[in-house]
């Protein structure tokens, strides 16, 4: 069966031109363009597949979705790879290892965060052992949301990364930034049980107010909830704050 080249899923000015002109084996271009074509068409993946997203990631490399057709093959060594795909929950114990592997990858390198866990910690965000998003310790280029994102979405993420590489070769500023300041925003509401003595009353008040403004508080007794918060506040002003 002949391969129909018009169904290619990605394009590049150099590649497009070469495909259009029959018999064109050699052409001249700027070095930057050529190098960016080289980088984006041979994105070798270093997988950090730690949990359920990793299973979908395997489908990305398998024959149905087949990331190989755009030159993205999975390698087992960080020294051979261009892009680190973090698919899955990263724990506090795993994070230093991921960082170490990232530091071992040669430049130029990129990172893709696949799935809510890698992006923000997902619903494990407040668990003692889970890192709330990998961008707290490595710079991320592309975020692929979903729980898990399907393999096509990951493919889309790779294509977006190719666009980014091309744009940066054209002189556009698309460089990622590490988010060290994200560390300062890690304090989040505790488990949402009203009247839990471990909670701060300020958080109670904010949560009740925001829930009331969303309008899904109907089935619960808003008056009672606000009363309990007011009582907590009164208690706290009498004694030392607990937290």
């Amino acid at each position: 069966m002949a391969v129909d080249e018009s169904y290619r899923t990605y394009s590049h000015p150099v590649y497009d031109f070469m495909m259009k002109v029959p018999g064109l084996d050699v052409m001249t271009t700027t070095v930057d363009k050529l190098l960016s074509f080289g980088s984006e068409a041979s994105l070798w993946i270093f997988p950090v597949a730690t949990s359920c997203c990793g299973i979908e990631f395997m489908a990305l490399a398998a024959s149905r979705v087949d990331a190989d057709r755009m030159g993205a093959i999975v390698r087992g060594s960080p020294r051979h790879s261009d892009v680190m795909i973090v698919a899955g929950t990263i724990t506090v114990k795993m994070a230093p290892r991921v960082k170490k592997l990232w530091d071992q990858m040669p430049e130029p390198k990129w990172a893709i965060a696949v799935g809510s866990c890698a992006i923000s910690g997902d619903f494990y965000r407040n668990i003692y052992s889970v890192v709330p998003g990998i961008d707290t310790f490595i710079p991320v280029d592309v975020y692929v949301p979903g729980c898990p994102p399907n393999p096509e979405a990951m493919m889309h993420g790779l294509i977006r990364l190719q666009e980014k590489i091309r744009a940066s070769a054209n002189g556009r500023d698309v460089n990622r930034e590490a988010r060290p300041e994200a560390v300062h925003h890690q304090r989040l509401p505790r488990l949402p049980i009203l009247g839990d003595p471990a909670r701060t009353s300020e958080l109670d008040r904010q949560q009740v107010a925001s829930a009331a403004s969303l309008g899904w508080w109907d089935e619960l007794n808003l008056e009672q909830a606000l009363d309990s918060v007011a009582k907590d506040l009164a208690d706290e002003s009498e004694s030392e704050p607990k937290v």
Binding site: V92, A95, Y128, P132, T136, F137, V183, L188, R190, V243
Partner: peptide, 17 residues
Amino acid sequence: HPLRKDYAIDTKVHPWR
């Protein structure tokens, strides 16, 4: 020890946690 009931959930053990 995180499974103790008095373990504060936001105990800082690393810069990113």
